[in-house]
Nucleic acid binder design. Sequence first.
DNA 1: TATGTTTCAAATGAATCCACGTCAGCGGGATTA
DNA 2: ATCCCGCTGACGTGGATTCATTTGAAACATAAA
Length: 338
Amino acid sequence: MSNDALKDATPLKPNDLPKQLVDRQTEVKKLQNLVKGNALIHGPKGTGKTHVTHLSLEETGVNRCYVPCSQYNTQYKALKQIYNNLNKENIGDGYHTSDLQRKVTDTLQSIETVIVLDEIDYLLLNDGDDLLYFLSRVKNTEQLGIVLISSNLSDIQNEIEERTYSSLQPHRIGFEPYDAEHTYRILVERARLALKDQSIQRKALTYIASTTQNISIGLQWLKHAAETTSSIITESHVETVKQRAFTKYAGTQLSQFSEHHQLLYQAINELHQEAEDIQSGTIYQRYTQLCQTYQENTLSQRRVSDYLKHLELLNLIHAEYHYGGQHGKTRKIKIRTI
DNA sequence: TATGTTTCAAATGAATCCACGTCAGCGGGATTA
DNA sequence: ATCCCGCTGACGTGGATTCATTTGAAACATAAA
C-alpha cells in the first residue's frame, strides 16, 4: 500500500489515541473520581467515549480489563475474555459458565480491577443481563469497578432487571456530541501530524467538521481525501470523495461482524437507490438473491431480523417500527449517509 | 519366571456453549363491510 | 371486523469443543522357584 501522501497515517486511524485530549477534561475528572464505583458512559458514536475511558484509567494506574461486547456478546465469551485478560493465559472452552464465574471471582479477589464493557448494548440484546448481575454481586466490591459504555442507551435502568440495577447503581456520564468548532480543532491537529507537505484548505476542513460530528468518520474522510490526491486538498475534492469515504467507514465498522451482516448492508444499499423507505420483507428478498449470487447459504428471517438490529446499533441504518397499518407489522428502514 | 505395581498416553464419554431454525402468538393502523 | 406481515420470545437441535475418566499396554519391581 502506497501512502505517499501521508508522512504518518497513524493519527488518522480512528482507533489511534493521542495523549492530548480536546475538550474532554470534565469527563476525565468525573471518571477518575469514580474509581470506586460503577459508571455508565453514554453518548453518540465518535465522541471519544472509549478513548477517554482508556486514557483516564491508564492515568489512575488501576488494573483494567477491556471487553468489546460487539465481539464478546455472551456472558460466557465475556467471562473468558476477562479471565484471559487478568491471568494472561488462554483458557479453553469446555467449562461450565459457573466454573468460569468462580475462576473469575477468585482472581478478582487479589487485584483491584476495573472492567470496561464497551458497546454493552450487544451483550444485553444477545444474552440479557446475566453477566452484569454476576459482576455486580461479586464479593469484595471495593476492589472492582464496572464501566459500561453505550452509544445507544442513555440509561440502562429499563434494559436490565431491577435486582441487577439496584446492586449496580452506575453513575451516568454523558458525552455531548462535538460541535463543528471542536471537530474542526481535532481534525486540524491530526492533519498537522499526518500530512507531509501536502496542505489542506481551511474550508475543506470546516466542510468536514460541519458535516459530521463523528470523529471516526471525519478522520476516515480526511485520510481518504489525502490518499486520493497529491495536490492541495480543496473543499470540492473533499466533497467528491464524501460518499466513498463514508462507504469505507461503514466497511470498517462492519468488518468485525459476519459475512451476512455485510451482505445485508449491501442489499439495503442497493434498494436504497430505488426507494427512500424500505420494508424489512423486501430487504430479506434482496438479501436472499445476493446470497445465491455469492453462493452463500441464506439465513432465516429470524436471524436477519436480529442482524438488522445490529446494523441499527452501528448507526448505519435508521429504522422506524410499525406495528400495524397498511403493511402490517414491519420496520421501515432508511440507510444512513453522513 | 510369574506376579504385582506404576505410569502415561490414547480412547472414550459426558458435558459445555451457541448459532441457527421452527413455531406460534401478537400488534394496531388501514381497509372494508 | 378483517387484513396485513414481520416482530418477538421460547424452545429444540446439531456441531464443534472441552475436561474428566477409563482403558490398555508397556515398563518396572518384587518374590518365588
